[in-house]
Write a protein that binds this DNA or RNA. Sequence first.
DNA 1: CGCCTGCTTGACCTCGCTCAAGGCCCGTGG
DNA 2: CCACGGGCCTTGAGCGAGGTCAAGCAGGCG
Lengths: 249, 249
Amino acid sequence: MLYQSPLTAKFHRAFTLTSGERQALDAVRIRIVAIGANQNLVREGDQPSRCIMVLAGLASTSKVTGDGKRQVTAYHVPGDMPDLLSLHLDLLDSDVRTVSACSVGFINHSAIRLLCERHPRLAANLWRTTLVDASIFREWVVNVGKRQALGRVAHLLCEIMLRMEDAGLASDQTCAFAVTQADLGEATGLSAVHINRTLKSLREKRLTSLVNGQLTIHDWEGLAFLSEFRHDYLHSARTNKTAEFMSMH
Amino acid sequence: MLYQSPLTAKFHRAFTLTSGERQALDAVRIRIVAIGANQNLVREGDQPSRCIMVLAGLASTSKVTGDGKRQVTAYHVPGDMPDLLSLHLDLLDSDVRTVSACSVGFINHSAIRLLCERHPRLAANLWRTTLVDASIFREWVVNVGKRQALGRVAHLLCEIMLRMEDAGLASDQTCAFAVTQADLGEATGLSAVHINRTLKSLREKRLTSLVNGQLTIHDWEGLAFLSEFRHDYLHSARTNKTAEFMSMH
DNA sequence: CGCCTGCTTGACCTCGCTCAAGGCCCGTGG
DNA sequence: CCACGGGCCTTGAGCGAGGTCAAGCAGGCG
């Protein structure tokens, strides 16, 4: 559908909207801005009065440790709302940054609050998206805590591919993933040098390749096996309990 | 207040309840059960129709990796609702287990849904608690991803102490924390042997001691400095934006 | 053209793992 | 009452995954 609000599109992917919901979503003002790579969108300690929605490109949530190093805790693909949590938490505890050049939308908290008050099903689904985010955080704890380098990187690549597919941005096991090897190090808790050797190994095993910001998975089975990847933690929008439940009313 | 529902107590700690809210909370049926240590409360793949609230003891959320090892992704102190997410996610992606012997309350999803529909402020605050959980997950990613053993263990101990304080269960820098060294290994991504050496080192530095299931922090400043501990990510209930905002209406 | 960013590879080192043995405490049964 | 066994804690020894440092290379851009 042409001229559909990105917010409408996000919900539309999850379940069938009523006309009232659709109208309310389309009515939400979104200020769209283009931003270059490696820029802060919001910073730890900020108290924003609006939320971000990634419309194009790749963003990340990260924290800086005492020695100036950065740990990425999440990547955000188009459709994600990285700081939706600022709706209920007074202070942000992480930075949200662009990784590649991005197009982002800014949505005022007040508009989202109104939406939640008037449309409980939309509220429930926004809550749900933050729960999926939490589920991904849990998997990342496992990833950095238990897997070794090869599986750890492989797991991350599997996740990115599936999430890009869900967002309709992958085809033929290929999607954009414009990260540097140093970026991957920050996300996996490995050094950039070791990321390089790990990617080389994955390439030599003919599992996957990451060149020119394009991720291609040549052997999904092999990569998933190597990384013990189970997609359940992504709670893919295709099976969406909240929508089912609430549409029973 | 005597005979107050644990659910009421949880919210009461966050903000001042209206009498309607209080009545609704007190009316929620909670089935209370005592369970021994190291028991599953719910399992990965379950589709529960009720939520757990920890009333006494220590629980954890964890996942098992292919080689049978376990990674703990969160600890739960009394007042926490470890699987509140099952309200909106169809399948659980983690196990929830008791660590020490626990008293837990079971609350039906239907009761919580009713509460959320009729009392938006309670709904917002439940949402908020899941956002705080997510914030803690993020910090755990940083902890396992970037800090080395000494700081990693120290950071965890700081977190536990603060959360137990928030729950009103710590005094004099001492609280119950009935974990084995193997448990701590599963939570930090370290081997039990190395946990032993790390705790020894923390003991020798006169920072903290963990004996007989009792955690004592002798030098908070020192321990926090060593682990770069910043408490902001706990979004302590004392400053609670949601409650403030919604009571302005 | 020169610089800067990112990729690649080698050499060396170290933090934390594994394996192994011994000790302590406590519950159970002879 | 003591012997035994099983958790859990403790410590030593050796090893290996991954970090650090360093150098060279390729490509894009002012």
